[in-house]
């Protein structure tokens, strides 16, 4: 009877750990391979070799070559570094901005709250991609523009989540206790409020990272993000677009890399989120 009742809890725990472990494993393999790409593959990702263009996948070129004769496997691996870094930073920057502003808005209330939250409203009023493209249009295409654009487009959701959480935490008696101990607002916010509101933001950031990587590749595909010849999945897909009928591997294999990273991040993110949620319940 006891063991029967115990089973469902164990099973679900195993299932969640499985997702987390496989997601983490895929990400780790991709990252490691990407960091050691120049040792693993004898080809340079940028240097052209016009005598060897549009080779189909073979043992010497696992993913084939592109129209400039570059090894696609090498380019896909080198691109992973960049794409994962952009995905990470374009979540971390808006997270920091949203955490700070949302924390201030929720904790202090009043005028600060009004100003910050009206700004949030303004930012959320723009569709995500329109805003990103608009900012890049002003700053010019490239990595810097993309960081700024994705941060500006992404922070407002974090600010909202954080503000809502802070409004709840603010009423806890331990915040009152901190005030009665004479702590300043800065200390209370940083040491007592923020640590108790980060969990839901990290859970959201995990799903956000997948979206950001997809946006990054989309922007690069449109020519607004990473510029050729730098290897990047979106750039590679864009370059292969013209050859889709004659050289399917140029588009398909970088595309599959995007899918694989997306799936791995989702599995990993879901696992982390569940563990964090359970931790905050206990």
């Amino acid at each position: 009877m006891t063991s029967l009742a115990h089973k469902p809890a164990q099973q679900s725990r195993l299932a969640q750990m499985g997702g987390l472990v496989s997601g983490a494993a895929i990400l780790a393999i991709i990252l490691l391979a990407s960091l050691m790409a120049s040792h693993l593959i004898p080809y340079d990702p940028i240097e052209q070799n016009l005598r060897n263009t549009l080779q189909p996948p073979s043992l010497s070129h696992l993913f084939g070559t592109d129209n400039f004769g570059r090894d696609i496997f090498a380019r896909v691996l080198h691109a992973a570094k960049l794409d994962l870094m952009i995905g990470f930073l374009c979540v971390v920057f808006p997270w920091i901005l949203g955490l700070t502003l949302g924390g201030i808005a929720g904790y202090f209330g009043g005028l600060a709250d009004t100003l910050i939250m009206r700004t949030v409203d303004t930012f959320t009023a723009f569709p995500f991609l329109i805003m990103v493209i608009g900012v890049i249009a002003i700053l010019g295409p490239g990595l810097f523009g993309m960081y700024v654009a994705l941060t500006l487009a992404g922070w407002s959701i974090y600010a909202r989540i954080v503000r809502a959480e802070v409004l709840v935490i603010k009423k806890s008696e331990y915040i009152l206790a901190a005030r009665s101990l004479g702590y300043g607002h800065g200390r209370i916010l940083v040491r007592h409020v923020i640590p108790n509101v980060v969990t839901p933001t990290i859970i959201f950031a995990m799903t956000d990272m997948v979206l950001v990587i997809l946006s990054t590749t989309s922007l690069s595909f449109l020519g607004l993000g990473v510029q050729p010849p730098t290897p990047e999945w979106g750039v590679m897909i864009a370059e292969g677009r013209g050859f889709i009928l004659s050289a399917w591997w140029m588009v398909t294999l970088p595309g599959l890399a995007v899918v694989l990273v997306g799936v791995a991040l989702s599995l990993f993110g879901d696992g982390i989120a569940r563990i964090l949620r359970e931790g905050s319940q206990a």
Partner: peptide, 23 residues
Amino acid sequence: DLRVARRQMQMIFQDPYSALNPR
């Protein structure tokens, strides 16, 4: 001055579950 005074006066709260920072 209030901060100094707060050292002399403290509070004990009702709900032992929400009165301590869980982290």
